[in-house]
Each structure stands twice: as C-alpha cells, then as structure tokens.
C-alpha cells in the first residue's frame, strides 16, 4: 500500500479542510521551525500538533504505524550523535533539539497526506493554488501507477531467479543484479508512462481548451482559519523560544 493513502476519518473537522489550506498550514509551521536552532519552539509546536491529531480524524496508533520509519530514523540519528560525539554534554542538547525539530516539521506533512485524498489534493492545487493542470493531473495519473511498480519489482526478481541468476553472497554481483533489475523496471515504467500520456492526450488533455472541473474544491473561512491557526502557533512557538532565551537563529 502507498504511504500516502488517506487513513483518516474524512468527516473529521480538520480532515475536511481544503488540501491547499492543510499544505499551507504545514508550510507555515515548517518555515517558522527552521528559523531557529533551539529546542523550545519545536517542543511547543510538536505538542500542539500532537494535540490536533484527533481533530484530523486520526488515531494515534494509526499515525504511529504510518510514521514508524521516521521515528526509527530520528532515534537512530539521536543515538549515533550522542554515541560518537567528543563533547558529549553539549551534543545531547543539540541532538535533542534537532530530533524535536525534525519531528515537528515532518509531522504536519505526514498528517496532510494521511488525511487527504490524492484526487482532492490535485483538484485543490489546480482550483485554489492555480497550479497548472498539466502538472497536477499528470502527477496524479502517474501516482496511480506507483503501486503497480511494487508488483513489477517482485516479478522481475522472480524472473531473474528463473533465469538462473542469483547473486549469492558476492556484494558486487548483488549490485550488478540490482542495477540490471532497476533498468528493466525503468524501461517498463517509461513504456507504461508513455502509453498513459498518449491515452490522456487522446482524451483531449492536450486540447488547449481551458479545462473545467467536475469536482469543486472550496476554500472557505474555516480553511483560512486553519492557516491562521498555524501562523498563530508558529508565532507562539517562536515567541516562547525568544522569551525563554533559547532563541538561536539559523543565520546569525
């Protein structure tokens, strides 16, 4: 299954928000959090983000399943930084700050994709953010082919075994096999993509006529409120870090 398939209850108050509003809110937070290198701002933001999770119709457990690679990555980074640092006391604080920042920046993105239908996202990007339909709808169509590639990859591996090719323990042979299987996958993906593009043009995608939309995405007061809320949260996080004296600008 795709890591970007929605897993949330779509009727939850914040899950229903316009996808562009959700993206903008995540963007505002991310921007505010990269400004400073301190631990306070990210901690505040992360706490607020976690508190907002139920309003997106997400269960913490489902969110945990979705984010475990991220959590493992952050834990690994934390562990290696602390383990291999020369100046251990100093590094623990910065490593913690870094981990908090990573989580606080990544979590909104995870929430957006876990609560947003890809079709709605593409529609909203075209209608509310004036993204070119050729890009948004084209990407959406290509996205549909991604799960097929997983199955394709398994088949290619099996077909190679059937041909008597296995790399055994030789790492160089492994690498060569990986490269040649990737090439086969790429050839197949390009062929399929070309066919899809032809089929889309045959249905008038390249007609040049201004496109209409069957599904209307509205950007209402509640959507504005979501972005404003994110901005307020970002401001509060930054203010707190300045007031507590931890503020440490990225470019100083």
């Amino acid at each position: 299954m795709n890591r970007a398939t929605p897993i949330a209850d779509p009727t939850a108050p914040l899950a229903r928000r316009n996808p562009v509003a959700k993206l903008a809110a995540a963007g505002v937070l991310a921007l505010a959090l990269v400004i400073s290198l301190d631990p306070v701002g990210p901690a505040v933001a992360l706490a607020a983000e976690l508190a907002a999770v139920p309003f997106f119709g997400l269960r913490y457990r489902a969110l945990g399943r979705r984010t475990w690679p991220l959590l493992v990555g952050v834990a690994g980074m934390l562990f290696s930084l602390v383990l291999f640092a020369a100046d251990r006391e100093h590094i623990v604080a910065s490593a913690l700050a870094l981990a908090l920042r990573l989580l606080a920046v990544a979590l909104p993105g995870v929430i957006v994709f876990a609560t947003t239908d890809p079709t709605d996202l593409a529609d909203a990007l075209v209608q509310n953010a004036r993204v070119s339909p050729r890009f948004a709808i084209g990407t959406l169509a290509a996205w549909r082919l991604v799960p097929l590639m997983g199955e394709e990859w398994r088949l290619i591996g099996q077909a190679r075994r059937a041909r008597g090719i296995d790399p055994g323990r030789d790492p160089l042979a492994r690498l060569r096999l990986l490269a040649s299987a990737s090439f086969t996958l790429l050839v197949g993906a390009i062929r399929r993509g070309t066919r899809l593009a032809t089929a889309m043009d045959a249905r008038g995608f390249d007609s040049g006529v201004p496109r209409t939309t069957a599904r209307v995405q509205r950007f209402g007061a509640a959507d504005t409120a979501l972005v404003a809320g994110a901005a307020v949260l970002a401001a509060a996080a930054l203010t707190l870090s300045v007031l507590t004296g931890y503020f440490n600008p990225l470019f100083s």
Binding site: R144, R195, T198, A199
Partner: peptide, 15 residues
C-alpha cells in the same frame, strides 16, 4: 473521435 487501447492499466487516469 474516441479511442480505446489494449492495456486498461495505462489508460485509466483517475482513482
């Protein structure tokens, strides 16, 4: 004109 190709997987566009 309308055209239908051989492979259903690579001519459906939407979910």
């Amino acid at each position: 004109v309308g055209i239908v190709f051989q492979d259903p997987q690579s001519q459906l566009v939407m979910e």
